[in-house]
Amino acid sequence: MTGPDTSAETQLEAFTQALCDELLQRPEPFVIVTCDATLSFRLGRFAQLHPEHVVDVGIAEATAVAAAFGLARAGLRVVVAGFAAFLSLRALEPLRSLVALHRADVTVLAGMTGLSAGRDGVQHQATEDAALVRAVPGVEIVAPSDAASARALAAHCAANPGPRWVRLVRRPVTLRHVASDTSRVWPPARWLAQGDGSVLLCAHGALCEQAEQAAQILTDRYAVTASVLEVGRLAPPPPGLPDLLRPYPAIVACEDQTGPGALAAVLSEALTAPHSESHADPASGLPGSRLLRCDLTASPGSGDYGELLHAAGLTGELIAARVAQSLVTGPGTSTGGMP
């Protein structure tokens, strides 16, 4: 299996460079607090040029978020950068009690989400962060997919106050989709492929690449037309999400998160929203009868990112095969991503 394309711009690099450029152009004072992650977030050059804007507190995620709250109360715009696994577990309490409950202008850059930490080790993988942070009221949870959407999201973050949790991966994300809107407006949800088929593949962040591949394989190999929806914001959910889901008998959640609470939960809640136009036969047992979960039931361990996706059943080919099988056994099949 081939390794990552190290020549292409990574999603994280595109986002952090664009965010720094945006913040430098704005009049508000700002500071970036990193958790021994200045180099991991490709901020070394920026720290050399603008040392007054970067503070590294070391491997101390709870301290970083608590300090960010204090700096925000002093009138600064604050960005915290660190590994998503440790920020979501070690710093969840200050994120809730200080940042979220006091509506502090803090944006957390949660890097190496899902399985993307790869060979850094299984302990670095953030396969619960979206669900954990989504349980904290008032925190916007967003993720770009490719580099272009990363730059648009950076502009959104610079123009809008937190609290915010930005999920990033340190690898290139390649999409076939070319946005018709050339403005810098970042959409909470966007179509990557839209058709009249019965299947809707939904993905968040880097998994949009696998969802697009799965849709193409479904068309080429299984003669199944599938649409692809990028759900870039998990909290609050994108406006009109129930109506985007409504026409599709089978909906697939593609994510490298474990269990409920992240994208699958967002889709499930949209399907059962009180004011949703998602009409269904009560005997069909919604939402389970329409929602197929392609996620994680257990960690596949450490290793190359592509190998981990394969072990978890989350490559485009394996997602397509799972969807095709579900169409035979009935869309009521709900399962995790591990084969």
Rank of each mutant, 00 (worst) to 15 (best):
A312G: 08
G232W: 07
E230N: 13
S326G: 14
G288L: 12
R221S: 10
R167I: 12
T258D: 02
E52Y: 07
R171N: 01
L263N: 03
T297R: 06
A64H: 12
L49V: 11
L291T: 07
Q123W: 09
S278T: 10
F30A: 10
P137T: 04
R233Q: 15
G44T: 12
A74L: 13
A91S: 12
V224C: 07
L168V: 07
S276G: 15
L200W: 01
I141R: 02
D220N: 09
A131W: 07
A135N: 14
A298L: 08
V78F: 13
V323H: 08
P29S: 15
Q17M: 05
T10P: 10
S145W: 08
S284W: 15
F86H: 03
P144M: 12
H279L: 13
R26G: 11
H310P: 04
R290E: 15
L76M: 14
R190K: 15
A223S: 12
G138S: 12
R167G: 03
R190V: 06
L71Q: 05
P187Q: 07
T107L: 10
L71R: 01
L98H: 15
V54L: 12
L92T: 12
V31M: 11
S278N: 13
V323M: 15
V328M: 09
C20P: 05
L76R: 09
A68S: 13
A262E: 03
L267D: 03
T333F: 07
S7T: 11
D56A: 08
